[in-house]
């Protein structure tokens, strides 16, 4: 290569056009990598989420309580905030034995999702955390793997304890907070209470047995 053409290349490499194209190419490369990655993992991630959901519902609604496929026996009802809540109805021999649904809450690290199950009388069968972004080592004691705290809700209902007691101890209620993290348990208690309110308000709809949706993909909405 002659000196002149090398100079030209160096000059071209310095030009704004070249920089812009190069940056554009890298962005294109990164986007296509992410796109491919998403396509490759999307189905599996969805499957994992479904498995997780099934497992978490299984934790709050024991297999003995139902003989139907919970992920297929769903109905959607608008919650207090106007967003549709998916309800998984557990039935045994045609009668409703339990209801499981997830409730959103806002904790220290942002949105979290809990799943809870209640009996037709409104008694809590169990509460579990589905996803959260609370501080590792502090707020994550709401996970059953880290702490037994979440089991405190078992057997409670609206009225037992009375509504005023549905708070953490620091706020005059009956639920423990964690050392170093009050906001997280406070938010979980609030979410569970909201879930119970939702049950009381929608009782009639929730307790009507629903016919299972028979689609190929199963229940999605």
């Amino acid at each position: 290569m002659s000196k002149k053409s090398t100079d030209k290349i160096t000059k071209f490499r310095k030009s704004v056009i070249f920089q812009a194209i190069l940056l554009g190419l890298f962005t294109l490369g990164a986007s296509s990598m992410l796109g491919t990655g998403d396509l490759q993992t999307r189905d599996d991630i969805k499957l994992r989420a479904e498995e997780d959901l099934k497992a978490s519902i299984g934790q709050v609604v024991s297999d003995k309580l139902h003989d139907n496929d919970l992920l297929k026996n769903t109905l959607a009802i608008d919650g207090a905030d106007g967003k549709a809540i998916t309800i998984y109805q557990a039935t045994k021999a045609g009668t409703v034995t339990a209801l499981a649904y997830s409730v959103d809450g806002h904790g220290y690290g942002g949105k979290f999702k809990i799943i809870m199950a209640v009996t037709p009388k409104g008694k809590i069968l169990g509460v579990r955390i589905l996803s959260h972004a609370e501080t590792p080592g502090l707020g994550d004691k709401i996970e059953i793997e880290k702490d037994k705290w979440i089991l405190d809700f078992n057997g409670l209902s609206m009225g037992a304890p009375p509504a005023a007691q549905w708070r953490v101890k620091k706020d005059g209620g009956q639920f423990d907070q964690f050392s170093g993290a009050t906001i997280t348990p406070r938010a979980v208690v609030k979410a569970v209470k909201a879930g119970l309110d939702f049950f009381e308000n929608q009782k009639s709809k929730l307790l009507t047995p629903i016919t299972p949706i028979m689609t190929k993909e199963g229940a999605e909405s």
């Binding site: 490499r13 310095k14 070249f18 920089q19 190069l22 940056l23 890298f26 962005t27 990164a30 990598m33 992410l34 990655g37 998403d38 490759q40 993992t41 599996d44 991630i45 994992r48």
Partner: peptide
């Protein structure tokens, strides 16, 4: 990579890798 655009390119590469690691592990 030219020196002028190296920082955005590096950030882009790192963010892409982190996202792919995140998706792969999740799946």
């Amino acid at each position: 990579v030219t020196p002028e655009i190296r920082i955005p390119v590096f950030v882009l590469i790192i963010a892409t890798i982190v996202t792919i690691v995140d998706m792969t592990m999740n799946a």
